[in-house]
Design a protein around this nucleic acid. Structure first.
Length: 715
DNA sequence: ACGGTTAATACA
DNA sequence: TTGTATTAA
């Protein structure tokens, strides 16, 4: 992927911060009595003790690893504490960990550019900060360097056994005869150590880090000394580090490409890779990959830190392994409902907290053929424009599934014709939302768009509504719907694009959150109705739209005008805006800003009228109609279509939200937008912070000697 | 036929 | 552009 680029002459300072067994730490913060104990996080506890997805370092000593089930782990380590991943709607709910990850990001983003690489990994570009430090306050002038920095591992330094800890590191960090590059890395080490201390103080999480001149090396270094330590890679140490390294350890080479390198070219270490010319590698793997391989063998990577604090997509899915495979259409529909509800909630949160709107919905499924030898399970993924509101998403996802199923069955028809009894089961379902863009803060661009569309907009509207109603929104492979689908893209997208064409967009927005002095004030300002620039416009434009809760606007959207007018199209946009407006209105009810803010978080009311039991897959398995034989499948299509039409008339229950200030407790903070979590934490938990801060000046001894963490030691 | 779930990215 | 495949945590 990364195009060849020579190392910039001005060296960058890049860090990768990696949370130590993150899910375990999150659970240990919730239950401090677990600190220091061998602990693992498992999901789906019902079968063989659940699958392990995170293992504490105490437990790793017993040989417990991620490929195990809870039961196996218990055999190796009888005292192991198994904590279950929260379950919602019958599936794993990772929100707790996502939000904890956001806490960390919001702290790390204080210095330099910050890229959220995964739920527990963050890249930092500290070049500017390091240069500034080198200029204003270089390490060689520093009389004291903090303990955490001194604990850094410097690759290439001989760590003699007898030598006092930190002695060599101190010398290296403060050398006045060091190269500019090394001095910058030294500054990076100081900054990262400080950031890691802040993370620990404010979140109680430990992390490890690598500091190097690019992402590739920083990533490698971060895992060399864990947990709770940091590792610096001076340029002089790169060759020594890489040459003996098995290629499988390199990022991107852990899978098939790495295997192919090994089996086809006999390359097992990075050093082996060095012997191949760029051209040779390109012959085998294409120009891009060839060049990329040649570069990484030398520790060269021009990959930039992206400056993105938020995920680019949201998805939720579930596997239905073995006996759990879905056999009935009803169960597919039911699970899709659950998945779409979760997705919708997360999209709504993203809209509320980050002002972002997703524009594409994708459904993926895996189907298992129970009867034939080649149990093919290629089910095409399908996507369509995303409409907000749980029931809309659900409706569209079902249509996508229907479309995929039809295509899948058609593709199989030829092979099947002989065999009469071919049954199918669904082994995986997932829905995801992507193409997430910043919602414009004002509506000028939208209004301008409609003013400029006066003459032609009505015809476009007709197309749009028609599409909405007939559910023709599949991609070209959908066949007969292609023309209509293309028209949707042609007519609808201009509108969407205009909405999104506001200069303040995605990444820039995120960065701007951190540029000012106080992100909380800024956030409240954004929600403040008295803020004239946007709110006035919102109120104005939403006057005519029905102020129902999030899913309410669907009613208008679904109105069955055949001859559509510009007014209708405009009302769509009004509804769209009204959704945003409603979120804001709920925030005005409270008295103080914090209260208002918490209320805006909308704890979901347990919808008692939820028709679908969401606890176990078994309950979805009532044998109604089988997805069974191919012959039956033709009938299914009809059934699916029937289902769709019935869905269409489904009552629209407005979602209700309970706003209960009494329920505000510290765990709620996890739900807050990343930008302000740590600030709120600071307000609510001043005592705890003071306590943890006095514990020690180094991260390594934070939890280690005492079996108990600072939190439980006072209870 | 049970590491599951979630993301990002490159390529066709 | 959409859909698929790969990779990773």
């Amino acid at each position: 992927m990364p195009v060849a680029r020579p190392e910039p002459s001005d060296a960058r300072v890049i860090a990768l911060v990696d949370m130590d067994c993150f899910y375990v730490q999150v659970e240990q913060r919730r239950q401090p009595q677990l600190r220091g104990l061998p602990t693992a996080v498992v999901q789906y506890n019902s079968w063989k003790g659940g699958g392990l997805i995170a293992i504490s370092y105490e437990a790793r000593k017993y040989g417990v690893n991620r490929s195990m089930r809870g039961d196996e782990a218990k055999k190796l380590c009888p005292e192991i504490q198994l904590v279950q991943v929260p379950v919602a709607r019958g599936k794993a709910d990772l929100n707790l960990y996502r939000n904890a990850g956001s806490e960390v990001v919001s702290i790390l983003a204080r210095k330099g550019r910050c890229e959220r690489a995964s739920i527990d990994e963050v890249y930092l570009d500290l070049t500017d900060a390091a240069e500034a430090m080198l200029f204003e306050n270089p390490p060689e002038k520093l009389e004291a360097i903090d303990e955490e920095t001194l604990n850094s591992h410097i690759l290439g330094l001989d760590e003699e056994v007898g030598k006092q800890k930190g002695k060599l590191a101190r010398e290296w960090l403060c050398r006045s005869n060091a190269t500019q590059q090394d001095k910058l890395l030294a500054c990076g080490a100081i900054i990262v150590a400080e950031l890691r201390m802040q993370v620990l103080r404010e979140t109680e999480f430990t992390c490890s880090a690598g500091i190097a001149h690019n992402k590739l090396l920083a990533k490698l270094a971060s895992s060399m000394n864990k947990p709770a330590q940091q590792t610096v890679v001076p340029s002089s140490a790169v060759k020594g580090m890489l040459d003996p390294l098995p290629i499988k350890k390199m990022k991107q080479l852990g899978g098939k490409l790495g295997s192919s390198l090994q089996s086809d070219l006999g390359i097992s270490t990075v050093g082996d890779l060095l012997k191949f010319t760029e051209e040779k590698l390109q012959e085998h793997y294409g120009t891009n990959t060839g060049t990329w391989l040649w570069n990484i063998a030398r520790g060269i990577s021009g990959d930039e830190v992206e400056g993105r604090l938020l995920p680019k997509s949201h998805g939720c899915g579930k596997n239905f392994a073995g006996p759990q495979a879905l056999k009935t259409l009803a169960s597919v529909e039911s699970w899709l409902k659950d998945l779409c509800e979760e997705l919708s909630e997360r999209l709504q949160s993203d809209l509320d907290q980050n002002n972002r709107v997703a524009h594409s919905l994708t459904l993926h499924a895996a189907v298992y053929k129970t009867n034939d030898a080649d149990q093919l399970k290629k089910f095409p993924s399908k996507s369509c424009p995303l409409r907000y509101g749980a029931s809309k998403i659900q409706e569209d996802a079902l249509k996508l599934f229907n479309s995929g199923l039809r295509e899948f069955l058609d593709s199989q028809r030829a092979e099947i014709q002989g065999t009469s009894k071919t049954a199918w089961v669904v082994t995986h379902l997932s829905v995801s939302a992507s193409k997430i863009l910043a919602k414009p803060s004002g509506t000028h661009s939208i209004l301008r768009f409609f003013h400029s569309q006066d003459s032609s907009s009505s015809s476009k509207e007709q197309t749009y509504v028609g599409i909405d109603e007939n559910s023709i929104q599949f991609s070209p492979s959908g066949g007969e719907n292609q023309v209509a689908a293309d028209e949707v893209e042609a007519k609808k997208d201009p509108m969407i694009n205009r909405v999104d064409s506001n200069p303040i967009q995605g990444d820039q927005r995120e960065v701007s959150y951190h540029k000012g002095t106080n992100s909380i004030l800024r956030l409240f300002h954004n929600l403040d109705p008295s803020c004239p620039s946007q709110e006035q416009t919102y109120n104005e434009i939403s006057q005519n739209s029905i102020p129902s809760l999030p899913s309410g606007s669907e009613n208008r959207m679904a109105a069955d005008q055949v001859e559509a007018t510009k007014e209708t199209l405009i009302s769509h946009v009004k509804s769209y805006l009204a959704r945003g407006e409603m979120q804001k209105e709920t925030t005005h009810k409270g008295s103080g800003p914090i209260l208002r803010f918490f209320q805006a978080q909308r704890l979901p009311c347990t919808s008692s009228d939820n028709a679908v039991p969401s606890t176990s897959g078994a309950e979805h398995e009532q044998e109604l109609d089988r997805v069974g034989t191919y012959e039956e499948s033709r009938k299914e299509k009809v059934e699916i279509n029937d289902d769709l039409s019935s869905l269409h008339h489904e009552e629209h229950r407005p979602e209700r939200w309970r706003l209960n200030p009494e329920e505000i407790d510290t765990s709620v903070i996890d739900e807050l937008p990343p930008e302000i979590q740590h600030e709120i934490r600071g307000w609510l938990q001043p005592l705890k912070r003071a306590k943890t801060a006095t514990r020690g000046s180094s991260i390594a001894d934070y939890f280690s000697p005492a079996k108990k963490g600072p939190k439980s030691s006072n209870s």
